[in-house]
Design a protein around this nucleic acid. Structure first.
Lengths: 193, 193
DNA sequence: ACTGTAGGCCAACATGTGTTGACTTTCCAG
DNA sequence: CTGGAAAGTCAACACATGTTGGCCTACAGT
């Protein structure tokens, strides 16, 4: 598509198609989930032959796996005052998702993790590696251990109902309304009493 | 299995196998979702031939549809004091799910609704027909209209993380801990301020 | 006993899928 | 120029799945 005469260090031709495959795969997995996404469709989106997908990623499961590299990009929660923590969280996820939910890897993952063990396992990893530590740093380890799960439940519940199920009662709310409604709820979960 | 010499009014032989198919289908759809559930597997579970499934239900989509008759069995929320409403809700859903999540139709539906339009539409119906009115009766229509979605998000978020994704941080909590942690959160969502 | 019908089984078809291997084209190093 | 590897295409295999239609079997009504 674009001119590419500028040869950046390692700019093999395969890198571009590999990237195109990944982009197409993310899109498909995101909108249709693992089972309904076909190698043929991904290849077609990427403008190449299905066998290329196999050459670069081995098989469907590994392609899927390559798709699931996720960085929640959580801000440093120790820098925010405790009482602003809930709204910071809600705002952070809303911001991520309001852009283009269809290619946010976290939603991709949610959609698949519900029926796919591999994806569910990856979800556990992400929670353990990113969410839990961030909350532990902000709240102290004991409290976080008991409450992090419920916080995740609330945030994922929002993602589920608004972006995957698209429940009208949730999609009609504005981001501001959601922030105003949900932040106090998360605050309540975090309150130690 | 059981003796059935007592012929209750309309006890055709087909009714039993039809019921067996439905039971098997619920179980499969619940644990594997729509796509990964095969007619052959359902038939095998029910101990009959795949073609029987077609005879009774026409096709896979209609079998699925027959599976989705859901009654949340929400208690009469007007009978509970407003400040006990959240814990009543949390307890109600926990009770339903703690029994055998695998054959609770609501979880079946959630699992499928994430990738299946038909199921998602049914989810909308159930929310509109059961959750929204119950909350409207207890809270008044205006408040309910703005908050019911977030309440649903929180309850479904619980179901998602605990029973579908099985996040350790949530599965390790006891029902009592969940009730104690989540009820105040829902209360916060309902607080009009 | 006879027969029609509902309940059930079997074998096959059509299709879509993941995956493979052989063949062609591109393109750069020597 | 030229050879050989990298990048890509093509056609097919093997298999699972939804679905169909023909056949068998039990059994209730006559």
């Amino acid at each position: 598509m674009t001119r590419d005469t500028e040869t950046s260090t390692t700019d093999r031709r395969s890198d571009r198609t590999k990237a195109a495959i990944l982009r197409a795969a993310r899109e498909r997995f995101a909108t249709q989930g693992y089972e309904r996404t076909t190698i043929r469709a991904v290849a077609s989106d990427a403008g190449i032959d299905p066998s290329m997908v196999m050459r670069y990623f081995g098989n469907k499961a590994r392609l899927f796996d390559a798709t699931l590299t996720i960085d929640l990009r959580l801000p440093d929660l120790t820098a925010v005052p405790t009482d602003e923590l809930p709204q910071t969280l809600v705002r952070h996820f809303l911001k991520r998702w309001e852009g283009d939910p269809a290619d946010d890897a976290l939603l991709v993952l949610m959609r698949s993790a519900v029926t796919n063990e591999q994806a569910a396992a990856r979800m556990h990893e992400i929670f353990a590696a990113q969410v839990a530590p961030a909350l532990a740093a902000a709240l102290g380890p004991e409290l976080a251990a008991h409450r992090a799960g419920l916080v995740a439940a609330q945030l994922l519940g929002l993602g589920l109902t608004r972006y995957l199920l698209r429940l009208p009662a949730v999609t009609t709310l504005t981001p501001d309304e959601i922030e105003a409604g949900l932040a106090p709820a998360i605050q309540a979960v975090l309150d130690p009493n």
